[in-house]
Simulated scan of single mutants.
Amino acid sequence: MTDALLQIEHLSIDLPGPAGPVRVVDDVSFAVAAGRTTGLIGESGSGKTMTATAVIGLLPAGAEVSGSMWWQGEDLVTMAEKDRRRLRGRAIAMIFQDPQSALNPTQTIGRQVGEILRRGGMPKQEVRQKVIDLLDRVGVPDPRTRHAQYPHQYSGGLRQRAMVATALAGSPQLILADEPTTALDVTVQARILALLRRIREEEGMAMLLVSHDLRVMAHVADEVVVMYAGRLCEIGPGREVLSSPAHPYTRALVVSVPAVRSRTAIAEPLPGSPASPADRPSGCPFHPRCAKARAVCRTEVPQMRQVAPGRQVACHFPEET
């Protein structure tokens, strides 16, 4: 991808476990284009959040990372921590899944939104006005009053808007959004998604959106990356992948959520339980849950291959999906 802002190549992440290292992300490669939203889809334990936190450098202690993550000619994997801190919050920012735990309950919203500005040397009065402007932009009512309030005085939806304002404060080129609407009701989810899409378009920034909710991806993602048990399943344009999946796992996700297909479609539950990276099946990790699995699926790991322009899939028999 020639306009890639972030290029991830053969990324693998090992976490310490009771019986030794556990590979939670295994040989993952994809790109995030400037000015576009790339969606990371998968069930819990698929490795999508680990991939996003690797980009911003917030992996758990003891994590071992291999491969490359190219950012403007520099490899984030080998970059010194002091240089990662320089990028964090400025060039690359993150919106966390649970604003209740991500926000400091002992500090005002305004102080937290303005932290990156103060660290950049902006004068106190300018910081205050910038924070008010940011809160107003993301839809926090009466920001001149509410910037001095604490997180517990905000509703769940407003806390998430404050998190968006915090991410925007450093004028980043890339925002990582980890399940940004999971804890919200449906109405508030729609408003937050509309806000993220509007701001991305206005700022021309890129977004890596992590979610297990295909309805979210259908509304927001330009490109989609599907992961299962730490490995890639499918990559392609969002509309094409969700309307015509090439991997059995992607298809199973789509048909399990009727609203992605049509209002009258009947849900087809995905059988079985997600594979654990600590005990990943041989061959294709999805084969124990796949109705079309054959002998080769149980013994050989399928490699990513192109099945159409801009579309890749890791399946031995994608034409049957």
Rank of each mutant, 00 (worst) to 15 (best):
M1H: 08
T2H: 03
A4T: 07
L5S: 08
L5P: 07
E9S: 13
S12D: 04
S12C: 08
A19H: 12
G20H: 03
V22E: 01
R23N: 02
R23P: 00
D26V: 02
V28Q: 03
V32G: 05
V32D: 04
A34K: 09
G35R: 08
R36E: 14
G45T: 05
S46G: 05
M50S: 12
T51S: 13
T51Y: 07
A54M: 13
G57P: 09
G62S: 12
G62W: 08
G67S: 14
G67H: 09
Q72I: 10
G73I: 09
V77N: 12
M79Y: 06
K82N: 08
R85Q: 11
I92F: 14
A93M: 15
F96T: 15
D98N: 15
P99L: 13
S101Y: 06
N104L: 10
T108K: 09
R111S: 12
Q112F: 01
G114E: 00
G114M: 02
L117M: 09
R119L: 15
R119C: 11
G121P: 10
M122A: 05
K124T: 10
Q125Y: 10
R128E: 15
Q129A: 15
Q129H: 07
Q129D: 14
I132T: 07
L135G: 04
D136S: 12
R137E: 08
P141H: 06
H147Y: 13
A148T: 06
Q149I: 03
Q149S: 14
Y150L: 11
H152L: 08
Q153Y: 07
S155C: 08
S155A: 12
G157Y: 01
Q160A: 06
A162Q: 08
A162N: 08
M163R: 13
A165W: 07
A165M: 11
L168R: 05
A169R: 03
G170V: 12
I175P: 11
D178T: 13
V186A: 11
Q189D: 10
R191D: 10
I192F: 09
L195N: 10
L196T: 11
L196Q: 13
M205C: 13
M207G: 11
M207Q: 15
L209A: 14
S211R: 13
R215N: 15
D222H: 11
E223G: 11
V224H: 00
V225Q: 03
Y228V: 05
A229L: 01
A229R: 00
G230Q: 01
G230E: 02
R231T: 10
E234S: 00
E234F: 00
P237L: 07
G238I: 01
G238A: 09
G238Y: 01
T250F: 00
A252H: 02
A259H: 02
T264W: 03
T264D: 13
T264P: 00
A265T: 03
P269D: 04
P277I: 03
D279H: 10
R280E: 14
R280D: 09
S282Y: 04
S282M: 06
S282T: 08
F286K: 01
F286T: 02
P288K: 13
P288E: 11
R289F: 01
A293C: 09
R298I: 05
T299W: 08
T299I: 12
P302R: 02
M304L: 14
M304I: 02
G310R: 07
R311Q: 06
R311P: 01
F317W: 07
E320W: 00
T321W: 00
